[in-house]
């Protein structure tokens, strides 16, 4: 079984995100960069499937050379090889899906595992677009994945409960938080990752022209909330909820 995982380099979820003083972009100075946590869950799931079924785990990222760090992290966890598609940072999900689609055509994986969303843009689009472009089925927000023969049975985190669907392979699956707990890379894993094959490609080589269907016009910080009050006791709270906030 061959699995393709996508990994995106994003700001650390623990970082306090602020705008640069000129408002042009977010301030990344001094902000730690990590692998999108949902992608990490995807890599872990791919490794688990490989451990039980055999096969190969390929990781890809789209971005500058900086993204090699995230590809190496995935390889340190155990992925077999990496692909970096060198591209400008600002691209819409349509373009991202097209790029991944080209890599899928070259690699012919049985399964593509992606994070359900990147925690920077929070768009939650690329995987579904990819599945549609390929004419494949999809299982988003996976809570449990079982591969049996030519089919994946996936339990999904849906509104109101857990939904189980079956999807024919090849397919696109996106991960939710509770699918697994990603392993830490071991020291030998990290050493080995340095020697694992990493290919780089350009958009020209893949034949993708970026679309600009979704253009970023500006970023702002949400208005700060007025400071609240620490109240001495529950009686005061009940009083305030009744007479000040009028919510009781």
């Amino acid at each position: 079984m061959k699995i393709l995982c996508t990994v995106k380099r994003v700001t650390d979820y623990e970082a306090k995100i602020r705008l640069k003083s000129d408002g042009s972009d977010i301030e990344t100075d001094g902000v730690n960069m990590i692998m999108n946590p949902f992608d990490e869950i995807g890599v872990e799931e791919a490794l688990k499937i490989k451990e039980s079924k055999g096969g190969e785990v390929v990781v890809m990222s789209i971005g500058s050379d900086d993204s090699i760090q995230q590809i190496r992290s995935a390889m340190a966890m155990g992925a077999d090889r990496g692909i970096l598609v060198r591209a400008e940072a600002d691209m819409d999900s349509n373009t991202i899906a097209k790029i991944i689609g080209k890599v899928v055509t070259e690699e012919s994986p049985d399964l593509v595992l992606m994070g359900k969303q990147a925690i920077d843009g929070d768009s939650n689009q690329a995987a579904q677009m990819l599945a549609e472009n390929l004419g494949w089925g999809q299982a988003t927000y996976a809570y449990k994945v079982k591969i049996e023969g030519e089919e994946a049975t996936v339990t999904r985190e849906a509104d109101g409960g857990l939904e189980t669907i079956a999807v024919k392979l090849p397919a696109v699956i996106t991960t939710d938080l509770r699918l697994n707990e990603p392993r830490y890379a071991s020291l030998p894993g990290i050493m080995k990752a340095k020697r694992k094959p990493l290919a780089t490609k350009t958009l020209d080589e893949l034949g993708v022209t970026p679309t600009n269907y979704v253009v970023m016009k500006g970023l702002e910080e949400p208005p700060a909330k007025a400071a609240g009050q620490i109240l001495p006791d529950i009686a005061t709270l009940v009083e305030k909820l009744k007479s000040e906030a009028k919510v009781l």
């Binding site: 995100i17 269907y213 979704v214 500006g218 702002e220």
Partner: peptide, 16 residues
Amino acid sequence: RPMWAGNIIGTVEVTS
């Protein structure tokens, strides 16, 4: 739309 867990609000234009 909210981005970065709502830390940033982005203004996006859809041109298609």
